[in-house]
Design a protein around this nucleic acid. Structure first.
Length: 482
DNA sequence: TGAAATGTTGGGGCG
DNA sequence: ACGCCCCAACATTTC
């Protein structure tokens, strides 16, 4: 009777789980373990919203495992020590896990593998989180890609070579080693701010699949337009499920292709959605090849960019009190639900880094703590993209105007009214720019600027010009004469 | 996955 | 009929 440890990390699912499948292939007895390891609390220690999700997801995973005959063993302590001890306690000879790509975790896992192999444990890791390993997609010259379009063209060409997702094992057997209760991991908030999260989300593998099916049924066909509409449930909302591996990208791909076969789904909508999975792949590709970008701009000229660093502006942005309704609505959606529509993420990030000229890292840290889908690869790419200092970045001069963006992407202003009840009675023509409304219009809607809702903390046109000036200062002089 | 400034065009009013 | 001006609409350029 051989025993294998399956080390769950951010692959909190039983289906399409290569590490679990390998363990079942090679051993009769399975020990499923999650290790709450102090060495993971580095510079990018998981934030409060992320921990809330982790708690829920671990609880669901434990239920799912119990239904199949074993439970999830929780351990606390350095991962190498805990896994070695657990192998000893259970006489396990094999250890399987699915890889993670955060630079600090890669380093830890690499040395862990060396140490545990030295103890005689057979260790093997798998790809459960990505369509392609970050090191497998390279240019003809063998270099990493720095531009998305050619990266994704190369990726698409091999989509058909991917392994088919394996089903969850039906029955599991194994010992019941000593473990900690979930509560002692300290994942839940001490003050109950999580009601909005619980109302919005269903963490766990079942919830992830329900969301995927619902999206394929209701969202996919109109994704091309729907994905840019924060007022409509048009986006997939799969990001936290993907981050915690309650769902794998291979399963998303299979479901989307299946949906396209079943019903007349616009081909371009399906491709647009798959391209979003491609951005996730690209983010991991960049994180692998440029690990320093979690904390430093990829474009080195930005090391000397004159960020403004004004605490009261940063706080106004965090609290959703900038005076720009689309920005404030987004920041409040984030605070209430742990999530923000991607279109609105771009707008709030543009305002923070460009109009308010706060460092993209300040924004990245706030998102890190408040997003349930906070992901080091995606967060780093997203912020450097908007700030204009990353790979395939939006040019710095691409500055979003929150008024125009609201007109374009929230045509009935439903998103604004949902998150800004104090402005809800303003008519469509003024709710997204109350500072331009006349006094009678404001009075009739019960809005008093500066008391019930803030005035804009900056002038859009002037701050835009100042941002462009700052950008011009870090640009290298063009080699003109030759 | 921008927005603003600047340039061009063409229809209509008018003397 | 014609030239002139205005300006909206659209296109291009610039940041």
């Amino acid at each position: 009777m051989s025993t294998a440890l399956v080390w769950f990390r951010r692959d909190l699912r039983l289906a399409d789980n290569p590490a679990l499948a390998a363990a079942v292939r090679h051993a009769e007895r399975i020990v499923a373990v999650y290790v709450h390891a102090p060495e993971e609390d580095g510079a990018w220690r998981a934030g409060a919203a992320s921990n809330w999700w982790l708690y829920q997801s671990l609880a669901r995973l434990d239920e799912d495992l119990r239904r199949r005959g074993i439970r999830l063993t929780l351990r606390r302590g350095p991962a190498t020590r805990e896994l070695a001890a657990l192998a000893r306690e259970t006489s396990a000879t094999h250890l399987y896990w699915n890889r993670l790509y955060d630079p600090a975790l890669v380093a830890r896992d690499t040395s862990l593998k060396v140490e545990l192999r030295a103890l005689g444990l057979f260790c093997e890791s798998f790809n459960g989180a990505l369509l392609f390993e970050p090191w497998d997609v390279l240019t003809i010259q063998g270099q990493p890609y720095r531009v998305f379009t050619p990266f994704w063209r190369a990726g698409q060409a091999r989509l058909d070579t991917l392994p088919v997702p394996v089903p969850a094992p039906e029955r599991l057997r194994g010992p019941a080693p000593r473990g900690e209760p979930l509560e002692v991991l300290g994942l839940l908030p001490h003050v109950a701010w999580d009601a909005g999260l619980a109302k919005t989300w269903t963490p766990g593998e079942d919830g992830a699949h329900a969301r995927l099916l619902e999206f394929c049924d209701d969202g996919l066909a109109a994704y091309d337009e729907g994905r840019d509409r924060p007022d409509l449930p048009g986006s997939s909302r799969l990001s936290p499920h993907l981050h915690f591996g309650e769902l794998g990208p291979r399963q998303c791909l299979a479901a989307v292709r299946n949906a396209v076969v079943d019903r007349p789904v616009a081909r371009s909508s399906a491709e647009t959605f798959l391209r979003e999975l491609g951005w996730r792949e690209f983010a991991h590709h960049l994180l692998h090849h440029f690990p320093q970008t979690t904390d430093a701009p990829l474009d080195e000229r930005f090391a000397r960019f004159p960020w403004a660093r004004r605490a009261e502006w940063l706080e106004a942005w965090q609290r959703g009190r900038t005076g720009f309704p689309l920005v404030d609505a987004g920041m409040r959606e984030l605070w209430a639900t742990g999530w923000m529509h991607n279109r609105v993420r771009m707008v709030v990030a543009s305002l923070l880094t460009k109009n308010l000229r706060q460092s993209w890292l300040a924004g990245a840290r706030w998102f890190w703590d408040t997003l349930v889908d906070a992901d080091l690869a995606n967060n780093t790419l997203g912020w450097q993209w908007t700030a204009g200092c990353g790979a395939d970045a939006a040019p710095f001069f691409r500055i979003f105007n929150p008024v125009l963006q609201a007109e374009r992407h929230d045509p009935r202003r439903l998103y604004l009214r949902r998150w800004l009840p104090e402005l809800a009675r303003l008519p469509d023509a003024w709710i997204h720019r109350p500072w331009q409304a006349t006094a009678p219009v404001l009075d009739a809607a019960g809005v008093s600027l500066g008391s019930t809702y803030p005035r804009p903390i900056v002038d859009l046109a002037a701050s835009r010009r100042e941002a462009l000036d700052a950008y011009a200062r870090i640009r290298e002089p063009v080699a003109s004469d030759r």
